[in-house]
Design a protein around this nucleic acid. Structure first.
Length: 858
RNA sequence: GCCCGCGUGGUGGAAUGGUAGACACAGGGGACUUAAAAUCCCCAGGCCGGAAGGCCGUGCCGGUUCGAGUCCGGCCGCGGGUACCA
């Protein structure tokens, strides 16, 4: 009998697939197309289990679709620009380009043994000039259509290294290398006008039925449509009025101050006259730019001494404060503070001793848990507006809900000439400028005479320089090497021909990943896309990736597809590029830790640990609960080792088996071994069938096995189609057990085993090919048509119903499938256990749910 | 801070509002073996009980329902995102 040798089998079948060319995608008319795509990897150097899980899931879908008669496109590429390449060059010399392409070669070599059904002929990296040159062409098209513009925006500034920092490079408000306190500084930056699409991007979410509801909800909140009142406060000194936007105009009578952002034009103007204001603005500019940092920073205020009049009563004068928690990017950069109904405003007013004026009180007769903010209670944000009265109602009206109160307030204000109701979005324009080397150069030129001039398309790609006049570019100096390159910036103005300077900012790497899915449809084209190909292959039928991309990457891609459509690079139907989305969980692992002499933690790789002890020294390790695999915690398992020990099929089987795909899966050595044992067992069982070592047949056993086979086909098919891979695998375990124990004849067993091989083929394609061949299957199982379940064999004649008394299970009865309700009720009440439980009491009601349950209510 | 998830045996998990714990791991018992490995069979949520059976049980508190792991409200804990990590 042959034994399961993963190494031999996998090599053999990968070669067979390669020679048959079955994964090469070409446009054909006779089959429906299916485009499955996994989020492409960043070439960090090693593939990790997260990649294995992601690509295995996509591969299951791709192979299943191939079996069900589809023309499948399943490509792979590299999201190859980004900071880690520059960091590597900074840390250990070398060039980002060499580092990146070396990593790609390594990772491709690690990925291929997985046996993925990828069309490698379409592979590209975003750092290929052929790719980013087309991206530059897109930029110029967007510019022409008014989808790109320049404005000032704040960045993290390291005052010691004199360089811009990414948010990730700001740690506790300090620069990661210099340790200097980070400041917010303004630079002129390029922006995509994604805000023009706010409404469309929001409304179109409703049609994305095959996206996870949580992702749609997150995007909805991110875009953030709000209805509010925009109005202005007149200044008592006659200066320019202060424009304010509020989503809570119903609390307008509770205003006790007006706050403006430190970046508000008025704050800037005051700073020029008053050094105290300038000092306060400088104080506010400390720290990083993230929303989290801004929101969590201690609330600081500065009284400008200016006063404004309340629009509903000019006798009420309110002070104007500069406050660090007001962002220039939101609304108008100015607010009115209503401490009675907003916790942040309340905290601010308590700190600076400003008055608290209440607009809402709890409903009459309600138990008194309400302590007015004036007396130290919390800000009263009506949690259930129906439980409160709108006492100081505009025009004496009462509102039952918060929405009604806000609408009434807007209507009242509009009638009285105080501002107007407006709809605003939280979504801000997408700043794409990066002051870094390893990214796509922005193809514009700065000319003293003509200003900012777009580069000519025939000059694309504007390629990154590899060296500085023969000397490799030095990354050990902080700052952007493009800025200090001796000659790269020099160019001629495309408009007037005079000497000019090239833009040295590069594009955000999110730009690269916002259109790669479209490029895969024509990866070698000399235009960004080819309409004929894009029209055939788009949309992506199934997109798969991590939940961490729920907002930015997916939103940017949705914007890009729309913008590309406007510029004629994508058909209308591809304005929404991903028909179905699946977000998978992470692969986690326990962390093994010991302490060094100074009590600092030392981490250990799983392969160095056995039975809770270090293999080398026998020292006990502390086991920290599972977390996302990361190099710093050393809780990583290298897929290459797993494939070497057990084979790719085992790795694939395991990452699919234990957890639902949308949840995290914990990698355990025991689990991987168990997966291997199971695959070896399947191989052994099939081997036994083919060598005729089976028991004598009985007709009942054949029939029983046939029914189980069709149930397995039905369950596994449903599992694969609904991303229930773990449930499908559980069913495959059960079916394997059934097959192993079956007393059916050899022919029936062989037929069941052929189905088993087919059902396993998307998950463990190499083993499935081997089994298929052993069982005399025709051709490649990868090409064989997917088995279909016979509905007639799925129905049972009888059904077992649990019987509850007052919701507690007391008995069960087995009855014919279509027995009528009254008879089921009679049979249920006749059960001894039911009578015992009733203890003589008369049932008040008997609920019979056909085919499900009986509940006797006393 | 804000937005979005998740929480079920010793472990990973299963369960269209309808028998909680499928399937698997680890564990216990047994078969085979000189022995071990491998393989095969059986047991297994907790408590009480010889058994039949009973009580408890899906992070915590409350609610809706004939019936809640599932729906609603309020907490606690963990994770993702927070616009320059990808």
């Amino acid at each position: 009998m042959s034994r399961y040798s993963a190494a031999e089998i996998e090599k053999k079948w990968q070669k067979a697939w390669d020679e048959a060319g079955i994964f090469r995608a070409t446009r054909t008319k006779d089959k429906p197309k299916y485009y499955v795509l996994e989020m492409f990897p960043y070439p960090s150097g090693r593939i990790h289990m997260g990649h294995v899980r992601n690509y295995t899931m996509g591969d299951v879908i791709a192979r299943y679709k191939l079996s069900t008669g589809h023309n499948v496109l399943h490509p792979m590429g590299w999201d190859a620009f980004g900071m880690p390449a520059e960091n590597a060059a900074m840390a250990s010399g070398g060039h980002p380009k060499d580092w990146t392409y070396g990593n790609i070669t390594d990772m491709r070599g690690q990925m291929k043994p997985l046996g993925l059904s990828i069309d490698w002929s379409r592979e590209f990296a975003t750092c290929d000039p052929e790719y980013y040159g087309q991206q530059q062409a897109l930029f110029l098209d967007f510019l022409e259509k008014g989808l790109v513009y320049r404005k000032n925006a704040v960045v993290n500034w390291d005052p010691v290294d004199m360089t811009v920092l990414a948010n990730e490079q700001v740690i506790d408000g300090k620069g990661w290398r210099s340790g200097a306190e980070v400041e917010r500084r303004e630079l002129t930056q390029w922006f995509f006008k994604i805000s023009d699409f706010s409404e469309d991007l929001l409304d179109a979410l409703q049609n994305l039925d095959d996206w996870p509801a949580k992702v749609r909800l997150m995007q909805e909140n991110w875009i953030g449509r709000s209805r509010g009142l925009q109005f202005s406060f007149e200044r008592t000194d006659g200066g320019d009025p202060i424009e304010v936007y509020t989503t809570r105009p119903d609390t307008l009578r509770g205003a006790s101050f007006v706050g403006i952002s430190p970046d508000h034009p008025l704050a800037r103007e005051l700073a020029e006259q008053n050094p105290d204001v300038a000092a306060f603005r400088a104080e506010c500019s400390k720290g990083g730019t993230t929303e989290e940092a801004l929101e969590k920073a201690p609330k600081l205020g500065f009284d400008t001494g200016l006063k404004v009049r309340h629009p509903l009563n000019p006798d009420w004068e309110l002070p104007v404060w500069i406050a660090n928690f007001i962002l220039m990017d939101y609304g108008t950069g100015a607010i009115f503070g209503c401490p009675a109904h907003d916790q942040r405003d309340l905290d601010f007013c308590r700190k600076y001793e400003l008055p608290v004026i209440s607009v809402y009180v709890p409903a009459m007769g309600e138990e008194g848990t309400f302590i007015p903010p004036e007396e130290g209670g919390p800000a009263y944000v009506p949690p259930k507006p129906e439980t409160v009265r709108y006492v100081n109602g505009f025009a004496g009206e009462e509102a039952q809900t918060a929405t009604q109160a806000i609408d009434a307030a807007i209507a009242f204000c509009e009638e009285n000439g105080v501002g107007k109701g407006v709809t605003k979005f939280r979504l801000r324009d997408w700043g794409l400028s990066r002051q870094r080397y390893w990214g796509c150069p922005i193809p514009v030129v700065h000319c003293d005479a003509c200003g900012v001039v777009p580069e000519k398309k025939e000059n694309l790609p504007i390629e990154l320089p590899y060296d500085e006049d023969g000397t490799p570019i030095d990354f050990s100096i902080p700052g952007n090497p493009l800025d200090r390159h001796p000659s790269w910036r020099d160019c001629t103005c495309p408009s007037c021909g005079a000497k000019a300077r090239r833009e040295t900012d590069t594009m955000d790497t999110f730009v690269d990943s916002s259109w790669y899915y479209a490029r895969f449809t024509a990866p070698r084209a000399t235009t960004p896309t080819v309409m004929e190909e894009a029209t055939y292959w788009m949309n992506v039928d199934q997109y798969i990736g991590g939940i961490e991309h729920a907002i930015l990457h997916l939103l940017y891609s949705r914007f890009f597809a729309r913008a590309m459509n406007i510029c004629g690079h994508l058909p209308d139907k591809a304005r929404e590029p991903f028909d179905a989305l699946f977000t998978q969980g992470m692969v986690t692992h326990e962390i093994y830790q010991t302490k060094d002499a100074k009590g600092r933690p030392v981490y250990h790789l799983p392969e160095e640990v056995e039975d809770g002890k270090l293999k080398a020294t026998g020292e006990a390790v502390e086991i920290i609960p599972s977390a996302k695999m990361s190099k710093s915690k050393k809780n990583v398992v290298d897929p290459v080792n797993i494939i070497g020990d057990f084979g790719a099929d085992t790795a694939r089987w395991f990452v699919l088996s234990d957890s639902p795909p949308e949840r995290d899966v914990e990698w355990t050595a025991a689990g991987a071994e168990a997966a291997y044992k199971h695959l070896a067992r399947v191989h052994r069982i099939v081997s036994e069938i083919t060598t005729g070592e089976t028991e004598a047949a009985t007709p009942e056993a054949d029939e029983e096995l046939l029914r189980e086979m069709h149930k397995a086909i039905d369950d596994v098919t449903k599992g694969v189609e609904s991303f229930g891979f773990n449930a499908a695998i559980a069913k495959l375990y059960a079916f394997t057990n059934t097959l192993a124990k079956s007393q059916a004849g050899t022919d029936a067993k062989a037929a069941a085993a052929r189905s088993l091989a087919q059902l396993m083929s998307p998950m463990t394609p190499h083993l499935a090919e081997e089994l298929w061949q052993m069982l005399g299957g025709e051709g490649l199982v990868a090409n064989a048509p997917w088995p279909e379940a016979d509905p007639a064999l799925l129905v049972e004649d009888t059904v077992t119903l649990p019987i509850q008394v007052n919701g507690k299970r007391r008995a069960e009865i087995t009855v014919p499938k279509d027995m009528d309700k009254a008879e089921v009720e009679k049979a249920a009440l006749a059960e001894e256990a039911v009578q015992r439980s009733l203890d003589g009491a008369q049932p008040k009601k008997v609920i019979v749910v056909p085919g499900r349950i009986v509940n006797v209510v006393v």
